[in-house]
Design a protein around this nucleic acid. Structure first.
Lengths: 153, 153
DNA sequence: ACAACCTGATTGAGTGTTCAACTATTCCGG
DNA sequence: CCGGAATAGTTGAACACTCAATCAGGTTGT
């Protein structure tokens, strides 16, 4: 472990380009959502996942997994979303420890209002800048990284 | 503006793969740095940029631009880094409004200790999972997104 | 039936980020 | 050289995220 495997110039440039793009992009998306819909990107993700579910409801731990969130983070987030009336919490029917988060009517309305602006931003900032080939490459690269992360710790 | 341009299935998959990979990856990098070096990734970036500069010092606004950080964020961050003795602030010679952030000896030592672990993590989580072609593609894609973001607001 | 362990979820403290407001200095047009 | 605008940087409040601790309810083995 004495010699560090530094990045080659090619790898450096790729890593920095990716890092820079992602940092700027996530900032831009967050600002757009915050300005137009009054929520951070993480909250938007929660609403999207709930809206895609039949019954618009999901167990907390399942929702945490789907939104790539820790349980703690989700708990805090759902507490805020509940204060705003966008989500409702109820006891799980089968497991008395469990909670179910459910998207309210109002939450659905808010999401429907937020979605076009956000998707438009993704189109404008990402998709429209890439060729169809690059879109495919991005999927493969993303998948490879996800697989690697899932593989070990 | 009535009809939203939704993403095609291909685009959806690519966007979600990228989003998932990046979210998990950044979390992993942050945790590694926090655990092994006691600092978040943003602080590491600051130290790196300073260390690359002749004199290991830079004007605050220049440093903010290089680290893709707001002035406010950098101010707060430098304040913390100064408390830890890793960075020192002095007045800029030419502009009496200006401040210069300088990496201390101790800061350099800390950075040298942190770098191998972080670079190793980038190698393990990203570079080693991709073919050389994909590394090149990632650079192009990142560059395209950065260019797009720079172009307008 | 009970102890030990595991799982679902929440909580609070600590830390970092954002936004808007503010101070101080410099730049620029007339 | 003066007044208004721009620039450099900081600050505090509000908010989100992390980590570790905690609580309650289930599961397992004997």
């Amino acid at each position: 472990m004495s010699d560090t495997q530094w990045l080659t110039p090619d790898q450096q440039r790729a890593w920095r380009a990716y890092l820079e793009a992602t940092t700027l992009l996530f900032d831009a998306l967050d600002r757009q959502l915050q300005a137009d819909a009054g929520m951070p990107h993480g909250y938007y993700e929660i609403l999207v996942r709930l809206s895609e579910e039949p019954g618009r409801a999901m167990r907390m731990s399942e929702l945490a997994a789907r939104t790539l969130s820790s349980r703690s983070r989700l708990s805090h987030a759902i507490a805020r979303l509940e204060e705003r009336g966008w989500v409702r919490r109820t006891n799980a029917p089968t497991d008395r420890r469990g909670q179910v988060a459910e998207l309210t009517e109002q939450g659905l309305v808010v999401l429907a209002a937020a979605a076009p602006g956000h998707v438009g931003e993704v189109q404008a900032r990402v998709i429209s800048r890439l060729t169809p080939e690059q879109v495919g490459q991005l999927e493969s690269i993303g998948q490879a990284i996800v697989d690697g992360l899932a593989e070990d710790g």
